[in-house]
Amino acid sequence: MSAFTRHRRSGAVIATFSGFEADLLRSLASQIVELLHHEAAVPDDRDPLEVLMDFSGPTTAPEDPVLARLFPTAYVEDEEAAAEFRRFTEGTLREGKARAAGTIIDTLEEAGLPDELDEDGLTIDVEMDEATAQTWMRSFTDIRLALATRLGVEDGDEEYWYSLPDDDPRAQAHDIYEWVGWLQETLIGALS
């Protein structure tokens, strides 16, 4: 995988992923979309105006630890204010995060990532404008928060993760967490 860079002439943000890396990113983004939509299922047959004016969102923090991390309580000291804030904002925030993850999936598929990978040595060249790159960056944050929450990553625990054997599934998942962090850093660098 090459780091994200900015094309000198066009200004586009570009990177090259192996087929495995691109498929892994697509899988991570798909899992975020699925998680965000799982608890927020809303009937699709509602009137569009009703959907626009619907402020009947959740009033309590999500039970899933990842969702609780993605949607923290806004007013820890005031339950009523926190419930009202969540009711008016969480649905829109969920949709925004799902759309951002969907942008990663769509960009990879537009770049030529097939539905099924059956070819060794396949590489995917991704080229995106600045707005799309910003969306990827936001979604990388969500993916990293989700991975960190599921793994129990904490500040200063690097020694623990590096002490795990390479074949430990937790070490492999942590490697993915770090890789997405590296991708995010190179993307920030390309956008600077």
Results as ranks from 00 to 15, higher is better:
T73P: 01
Y75E: 08
Y75V: 00
V76C: 00
E77V: 01
D78C: 04
E79L: 08
E80C: 00
E80F: 09
E80Y: 00
A82E: 04
A83G: 10
F85L: 01
F88P: 00
F88T: 05
F88S: 01
T89D: 04
E90C: 02
G91N: 14
G91R: 13
T92W: 15
T92E: 13
T92R: 14
T92Q: 15
T92G: 15
L93R: 15
E95A: 13
K97H: 06
K97D: 01
A98T: 07
R99G: 00
A100I: 03
A101E: 00
A101V: 04
I104H: 07
I104Y: 07
I105G: 07
T107W: 01
T107E: 11
T107C: 10
T107K: 03
L108N: 13
L108C: 03
E109A: 13
E109N: 12
E109R: 15
A111K: 05
G112Y: 03
L113D: 03
L113S: 07
P114W: 12
D115T: 03
L117G: 07
E119V: 09
D120C: 00
D120I: 05
D120A: 11
L122T: 06
L122V: 09
I124C: 10
V126A: 12
M128N: 00
E130L: 12
E130W: 08
E130Q: 14
A131F: 13
T132V: 15
A133M: 08
A133F: 01
Q134H: 10
T135P: 10
W136I: 08
R138E: 14
S139I: 01
S139M: 03
F140N: 10
T141L: 09
T141P: 00
I143T: 13
I143K: 02
R144Q: 14
L145F: 13
L145S: 11
A146R: 14
A146E: 01
A146D: 12
L147Q: 15
A148K: 03
T149W: 08
R150H: 05
R150K: 04
L151I: 03
L151V: 04
G152L: 05
E154P: 00
G156N: 10
G156L: 06
D157K: 04
E158N: 10
Y160C: 04
Y160S: 01
Y162D: 09
D168R: 06
D168F: 04
D168P: 06
P169A: 08
R170H: 14
A171H: 12
A171K: 12
A171S: 13
Q172M: 12
